[in-house]
Write a protein that binds this DNA or RNA. Structure first.
Lengths: 225, 225
DNA sequence: GTTTGTTTTGACAAATCAAATAAGATTAAT
DNA sequence: ATTAATCTTATTTGATTTGTCAAAACAAAC
């Protein structure tokens, strides 16, 4: 899963940095903007997965930014979370009407922020409702269920094995070197020896047979076309 | 969508008129009742989409009206918003227990009233999409009665256990991680340790047997297909 | 046929995870 | 007010998963 991008728009530089630090720690990619205009531009350019938007800003306030985003067909579906000084009824109502997805009141608790963001993102891509079943050869690799099916045989692979298989199968035919596999399946800032991949490949082969994953000597592995 | 009907029950005639005026302006159909008895009768007759209910009324108070509505199978689903003189904690708590969907404190801000009403109706529509009785395997999971049936065995699960089971069963086959389960069953802004889910799963398994909910190690839980 | 670089294999150690308890906290019921 | 039920947290335990290492096997190149 590639990193999700969050755009943070706030005129307080300190807060911007703090939020950036925390979001990055959680594995998000972070874009910053110091005012409404910058925010809109950044949104247009990068199409972030979510926008954190301060309501009180000089010149163009959060509500107006939200308004503009909602009327831009390219941006209207991007979820928005408002940051607001304290629970101010009027703006809160106005914001909800304008299509905010959540509100967070300053001062901001980090854990709360993170979990709200994740909740909104989750809610959002649940609506996308994409089927996550790969059918390759005689296998059905079902990421919703974390199950591999062959006919009516059912294989329950442990998480890492499953994810490795899923990744390779999703790039079927293409070779991936060990480091790439580690980055994609294990994550970017995780350090494990790259031979670990071999071991997992072996376990997959033990369970499903060795006619799915091919070795490309000196390069890496590939899911058979 | 045809006009939605709102029943307003309050003993102050002035307030009744004011609210009626504002709701009509928003495109709602409005019914008025000046006391609890009238309120109940109007509800029975017209099946409104939502009831605005004053708590403080001579004779039959709002809480009692709510109570009666909740015990009438024809009316129990109708969302209720209480109107209360000022934020009086005790009645607020009592009201929430009785199944109020929201509270609005007098004096009433019109915009607030409208936006709360819309929020409750929106929330309610979403819930309507859910089937009230799920039949899976040999189980009937009845959300109306918060009861699980297997043959003529009857299981009374406590609320959280029931809701967890219901949610998992409604997504049968699909794995959900603990955080998602917490957000869906406990709520988005509630913070409890995710291992709490484990304990509830265990209790469900104790009661119904462990052939319904499957563990997917490292990922989460899944209702067996 | 040997060398060299590489993957596979087997054995094992470390880390992780969930089930099972127990006990504290909160809430409902009497 | 007391008791009971439910919900939440913390801790222990056992099992599985994950990761490492090194020897064996293999394949291509010389």
């Amino acid at each position: 899963m590639s990193k999700q991008t969050i755009l943070v728009v706030d005129d307080e530089q300190d807060l911007l940095d703090l939020i950036e630090y925390n979001l990055k720690k959680e594995g998000f990619k972070v874009l910053k903007a110091e005012n409404g205009e910058q925010g809109i531009m950044a949104a247009r350019e990068h199409k972030p997965n979510l926008v954190l938007l301060d309501i009180m800003m000089p010149k163009m306030g959060g509500i107006e930014v939200c308004d503009q985003m909602r009327s831009d067909p390219e941006l209207k579906h991007i979820p928005i979370i408002f940051l607001t000084a304290r629970s101010d009824e009027r703006t809160e109502i106005e914001g909800l009407d304008k299509g905010a997805d959540d509100f967070i009141t300053k001062p901001i608790s980090t854990t709360k922020l993170i979990s709200r963001i994740k909740a909104v993102l989750r809610r959002f891509d649940e609506n996308q409702e994409q089927v996550q079943v790969l059918e390759v050869h005689d296998l059905k690799i079902d990421k919703d269920r974390y199950i591999v099916l062959r006919g009516n045989e059912e294989f329950q692979l442990p998480r890492k094995e499953f994810e490795l298989l899923y990744y390779l199968a999703s790039k079927r035919g293409k070779v991936r070197d060990r480091q790439t596999l580690l980055n994609k399946v294990w994550g970017d800032n995780i350090y494990v020896v790259d031979r670990t991949v071999d071991v997992h490949v072996r376990k997959i082969r033990e369970k499903l047979g060795d006619h799915y994953i091919e070795t490309v000597k000196g390069v890496g592995y590939r899911f058979k076309e």
